[in-house]
Design a protein around this nucleic acid. Structure first.
Lengths: 352, 352
DNA sequence: CTGAAAGCGCTTACAG
DNA sequence: CTGAAAGCGCTTACAG
């Protein structure tokens, strides 16, 4: 047990130098004799020196800037507004410590714009970045450049496992799958069949979606009253035509399908199919309260959406950056948030 | 539009006095000529003076202490741990501003202990209080004393409308009722009847439970596929015997009851009844993931629990106190958090 | 390579 | 009733 708070003044005294010197070694501003440097470092370590951020904030004029990169939230789809709000809330709290967060946006589905924004960020040269690796290839390129520059990055919503990320804040696919399974199990007749749809093209994402499928299936292996078939299919493209073709072949062959689980957020596409084929009484569960999904949730075609606390994701990601960069704390690599269940009624107040 | 930040030094200059004087009027430390006082106040107001909390924290040695009062979380029931964690988290953030939160606990269901703790709090004379008015009469007494001393208090979980509270953070009963209705509507056969149970003795609470009942019923007036009867009953006491008697008379008379909505958190008592009468296939929905409820949720007797973001409640309540006491901000009186839906699967990661 | 000094915006005695 | 000065813990030139 060492004594309470040690100040840089105390370290200076113990080392027999001035505070200026201590400050220099603590901040690697060089120009200090090797010997005194080591001595100071040693004292700081032994006494577990923690800088007083309040004092630092009061005096320091240099700002620390973080960047975020997300799809721009649009009038039609406020989905990306939620993590952004979380980021903004965190930024507000950290303002007092001279940290700023600069938000960058790219047009949804536009790889070129994404690249352009990453370049702008690189130019800004921030002390840390929060982003969602929507386009895997382009994101991987980006992370490599960040690695080279030593800029830490935190993923939200999804992650690139093979990259060198500081942290990921998001949900656990397996857990999400199980929650969905329980929901469908509750509403479906015991002998009804269940269709699991993987609507994916993005290779990276596949892992996450597979996790959800596995969680879903594991539920029925453990428990669950439903005894029906679990039919799993993949639809590699999400064009209306292709979906129709595929579903026609599956659903018309099996009239006993009473529930559908979509492992991703393109639930609305399936909802549309169900409506135009008068199959709306099939239970439909999928992910993410994006605007199109909310529409069909309210319409009653989608029964539940699984949310992933987008606000929390943004908020926590920024906090992690702060803790790592400013406080030198160790950061747990993956933080899995619980998912939340959204029905017609709670969507009204949803924002978490 | 006035210029950016104005410091007390600036005010002093404009008023032609010293910073000491400005500080004195800003803090009501008296002994200032009426005229200069008004002049200073005017300047501060016109320029929208906001104290620099960082500087204040660095220099001020006086601590601001808040108190919380909640039932002590027990090994068997961690329910009250969640708001407590929220309070602690907020306290941690505010530590840098020299605010401390001292937590008081009383034994559950023990009015005497509650009173004893309120006395201890009064003795401490904190700058603000967060508590849950579990016992209405005793709580009302307490609030009157607080009013007299001018100590602001924030309610969580439930509120005493007739008191002079600074703010309430909790959920909206009407909304909760609707969410529950949607859940039951999803799982119940179209022609099944639904029983609504009000298990209450606490007069204050009645309002909240009524709100839930009304929300629940309103759902079925607006929409919902279920066409069955909605039977509402009150059970003024929660002894096993009385519950049994009452339910025997209702449920045995109506074999068509397929769903039960409990407007409060004593769902487990109904679950026990259903189990011992082999009626577990009736859908059961109620409030709050207290330990006994979780048990029957996992068991499958309770299908859903509605949560009220207890962690957030504690967290936000403390923040409000801070904003009011330290920042002089205006505080919206009621903040209704969205409810969350909890099933067997998401309870595992539940803590929000 | 190192130290002495000023300053961040506020609070707190102390002196008058 | 009011002002001048020291101090909170750190950072930042400046001088040597």
């Amino acid at each position: 047990m060492t004594k309470a708070k040690i100040r840089i003044k105390d370290i200076a005294e113990q080392a027999g130098v001035s505070v200026g010197t201590v400050d220099r070694v603590l901040h690697n501003r060089g120009e200090v004799a090797e010997e005194t440097k080591n001595k100071i470092l040693e004292i700081a370590k032994v006494n577990n020196y923690q800088p007083n951020l309040i004092a630092r904030a009061l005096t320091s004029k240099k700002q620390c800037v973080f960047a975020s990169l997300l799809p721009s939230p649009t009038e039609e789809d406020i989905f990306w507004k939620r993590p952004l709000n979380g980021i903004t809330e965190a930024a507000l709290e950290l303002e007092q410590f001279q940290v700023k967060v600069k938000n960058f946006f790219f047009e949804h589905y536009n790889e070129q714009d994404f690249i352009k924004q990453t370049e702008a960020i690189l130019e800004l040269n921030p002390s840390g970045i929060v982003f969602s690796p929507i386009f895997s290839k382009e994101s991987l390129d980006f992370t490599e450049k960040l690695d080279k520059k030593g800029i830490p990055y935190v993923f939200i919503e999804s992650k690139l496992s093979k990259s060198n990320y500081l942290a990921y804040v998001g949900s656990d696919g397996f857990h999400g799958g199980r929650v969905a399974a329980n929901l469908i199990d509750f509403g479906i007749p015991e002998n009804g069949d269940i269709l699991i749809i993987n609507l994916a093209k993005n290779l990276e994402n596949v892992h996450h979606l597979n996790q959800r499928t596995q969680g879903f299936l594991s539920y029925f292996m453990d428990k669950g009253k439903n005894q029906g078939l679990k039919i799993s299919i993949e639809i590699p493209k999400s064009d209306t035509e292709i979906i129709k073709e595929k579903l026609d072949s599956v659903i018309k062959k099996n009239k006993n399908i009473k529930g559908i689980f979509i492992t991703g957020s393109k639930v609305y596409k399936i909802a549309r199919y169900l409506i135009s084929n008068e199959l709306s009484d099939i239970i439909l569960v999928g992910f993410d309260p994006i605007e199109q999904n909310i529409k069909y949730l309210n319409h009653g075609t989608i029964n539940f959406l699984i949310g992933q606390h987008p606000h929390q994701q943004g908020f926590k990601a920024v906090k992690k950056l702060f803790e790592y960069v400013l406080l030198n704390h160790a950061i747990p690599k993956d933080e899995y948030l619980p998912v939340d269940i959204i029905n017609q009624e709670c969507i009204k107040l949803y924002e978490a």
